[in-house]
Design a protein around this nucleic acid. Structure first.
Lengths: 260, 260
DNA sequence: AGAATAGTGTCTTTTAGACAATATAGG
DNA sequence: CCTATATTGTCTAAAAGACACTATTCT
């Protein structure tokens, strides 16, 4: 069996590198709170276009490990439930006239030319997650001038194909909403029907009759009503609900149909 | 801005390589014909486990270009409508006690040790497609002793995580069946209701009442009845149907709900 | 009493789902 | 006429969808 027909010149790879070449991870970290859906974006020092929080894959990590590590760097949250939604790869996806080796060199203390690995072909594996943005204090780092939440209805100019990634993540989230229980990681353990109702309305960006919504969601069995109420001040106290763990896990594995 | 904190030792990449390191493409090529669903698998020379048709990504290609090229190598078909369904990556996913550098060297004319790039960490981007297996004469090559169709109900021992990939592809196909029009690329331009009905039954692996099936599928608008019949021999001639191009494209973009 | 929010039930329309007899083509 | 296959419609049950009044809590 001859192997080298595939034309990689050097049959021995360099294991000394910590990260794998050509592979990046980008996370669409969606934040929900109080009927608002936002996405966490960062802006590199000296540029005026934005990026998704991303990074590279270590030799010792699985894809999901890397995505979790990268998400944690910006949110400080563990246990984000990240879901892969696509890989993006084309020879020119990391070409952007607003982010060039020249410009980077200008504001950097080292010379970076277009042979630098940073400007090589990268395939990006993308994940999305949903969290409560009020619980997150976004962390930038030395190279990111800003790291903040943006409304998904008002995305700033993005570098590369990161805008496509956001759109793709939202599309996937909306599809998943109809087939998997969403909100387990996002809502408090015990939540009210109006709370989960608002969440679904916000994600789908459309109104859902709360009476019918409640009937249908309870009919799936994934949430159950408790014998407790939540105190919310000068108003009638709403009942609390929680996810049924067994039904929830089952639904995650097998998928369900939730017609809202 | 300092870049090398990410610890890739050599900032300049080697552009002379035709393929990108660490990235592979694997295709789950599903074949349907006459109520049978099969998958195209290949067996490397001298081994008794099977692989999906796969390959590497050229510097000049997009992911989908590569997937199409690789699919064509085995099927000779252009215009396969390949859909990405996932990326698989973990440090040990290409470790398999039945496919080792030692065994490969034994049957090869070159020395391959575990530092060979072939045994490095690869992230595989996976695509699936659906075609008519009767139209395909599978092509092996010098390194693949066999390349044949296997029933999806009877998958032989697979190398690496390729069995997982098949399962994941089938799961995705079944999900897509409920949200996107399936069969456009597979069925002849004009097809009969019994034909598309059998296709759906086979993919979902369950019976669907043909009367209700027809009503519902026509109600979605993606197929329309023609004023022609197909001659099928000594039986009543079935009407022909075809996809409505506009509705089809629309459904592909936006997705639809097909409750069967 | 008033303001704000939650909770609940019924009716109508639509859809799902079960079900079997008739029509056609060719031999 | 026989065989094999295709076509078609109705009924019932379930679900979707529209809709509005009452209940609670606190000030």
């Amino acid at each position: 069996m001859q192997i080298d027909t595939i034309l990689m010149n050097n049959p021995v790879y360099d294991q000394s590198e910590l990260y794998l070449r050509h592979i990046s991870i980008d996370n669409v970290i969606l934040g929900y709170h109080n009927k608002e859906l936002k996405v966490l974006l960062q802006r590199p020092q000296g540029f005026n276009k934005w990026l998704l929080p991303g990074g590279y894959l270590k030799r010792t990590e699985t894809l999901i490990d890397a995505a979790e590590r990268i998400a944690k760097e910006r949110t400080n949250l563990d246990n984000l439930f990240l879901k892969q939604f696509g890989a993006f790869g084309s020879p020119d996806r990391t070409k952007d006239s607003d982010f060039t080796p020249q410009k980077l060199s200008d504001i950097s203390d080292i010379i970076i030319d277009d042979k630098h690995w940073m400007f090589d072909y990268f395939v990006s594996i993308c994940f999305y997650t949903l969290t409560d943005f009020e619980k997150v204090q976004p962390n930038g780092d030395a190279y990111m001038e800003e790291c903040v939440w943006w409304s998904v209805d008002n995305i700033p100019p993005m570098l590369y194909d990161h805008k496509d990634m956001i759109n793709s993540a939202l599309k996937t989230l909306r599809l998943h909403l109809y087939h998997y229980p969403i909100g387990y990681e996002l809502l408090p353990k015990k939540f009210t029907l109006p709370e989960i109702h608002s969440l679904y309305e916000t994600i789908l960006n459309k109104e859902l009759d709360i009476r019918n919504f409640g009937k249908k969601l309870i009919a799936t069995g994934i949430i159950k009503k408790l014998d407790e109420k939540k105190k919310i001040g000068a108003h009638r106290s709403p009942y609390l609900y929680m996810f049924d763990d067994n039904q929830y896990k089952d639904a995650l594995n097998k998928g369900i149909a939730i017609i809202l």
